[in-house]
Design a protein around this nucleic acid. Structure first.
Lengths: 139, 139
DNA sequence: CTTGACTCGGTACGTAGGTACAGGCTGCAC
DNA sequence: GTGCAGCCTGTACCTACGTACCGAGTCAAG
């Protein structure tokens, strides 16, 4: 089993991240502190690569490192239930739905503004700037 | 015209921002450096309140401070054309569309995961964790 | 045994947008 | 004329996620 020990650079290369990132994850508590050689060199188990990849994929799904830390905790725990994971995923969905709604509102508002601005004049009559500027005069 | 001079706290209150925020905007170059009393107190024109409100509304539309700085520059400039403003707005729309697409992809993926996880078992068989974990085994 | 690549810890920097102190003046109402 | 609210500068801190650099020690191939 000892032949599976990986050095920092090897883990980084296999997981496709920077070495500093590994140390950062370790500081954050996402990556367990690995054992060390007498020289201080870290010796990672092969599992570490899987964990880093897990982190990266969870990030792509929108989870923050804090949330991923919790997912990893659940993953390790024997007692954790699948329902807890599902609830974390659902919370993230709700989160994303909020962001989507907010972005869509922005998009809509900007679309209206751009559509209102068909003139080629100076900024003096720019409907877009006026709209941002004088919104309070409208109510 | 002198009776319109506002102190920092007054501008902040009328624009609904923190005093530090005004100084931050000044450092960033969004807010022109106001004149000073002999004591060093800032004396803002009433216009400053309008500018800060402009900034806040532009932020709500998704513009960054850097972009807003450019919008303010256009607003001040006599030579600037409405088309430049429109193009900034369109660029921001494209920006938002990218973010929307990315968020929707996340949302879809998470939706599939949550739907796949109907079990109430332990995390050992959690389809969500497995999906994040073993994605590379699928290809 | 040398040499070049690798690793170590610690710290600083980067983005984006602020917020919070500390310590010291100023302005004004009573 | 005094007391306290308000303002001044400068600096540090916050979230989130890393990156970069430094000087020093280590590993392994030739």
């Amino acid at each position: 089993m000892d032949h599976e020990a990986l050095k920092t650079g090897e883990v980084a290369a296999r997981a496709g991240v920077n070495i500093q990132t590994l140390r950062y994850y370790e500081r954050r508590g996402l990556l367990e502190e690995p054992s060390r050689r007498p020289s201080g060199y870290r010796e990672y188990p092969a599992e570490a690569v899987r964990i880093v990849r897990f982190i990266k994929r969870a990030q792509e799904l929108g989870f923050t490192l804090r949330e991923i830390q919790e997912l990893l905790r659940l993953r390790e725990s024997e007692k954790a239930s699948c329902a807890q994971v599902r609830s974390a995923a659902q919370a993230k969905i709700d989160d994303i739905d909020h962001k989507l709604a907010s972005l869509k509102a922005m998009r809509r508002a900007l679309g209206v503004l751009v559509a209102s601005c068909r003139s080629d004049g100076s900024v003096r009559q720019c409907p877009i700037l006026e709209a941002i500027d004088e919104k309070e005069a409208r109510s």
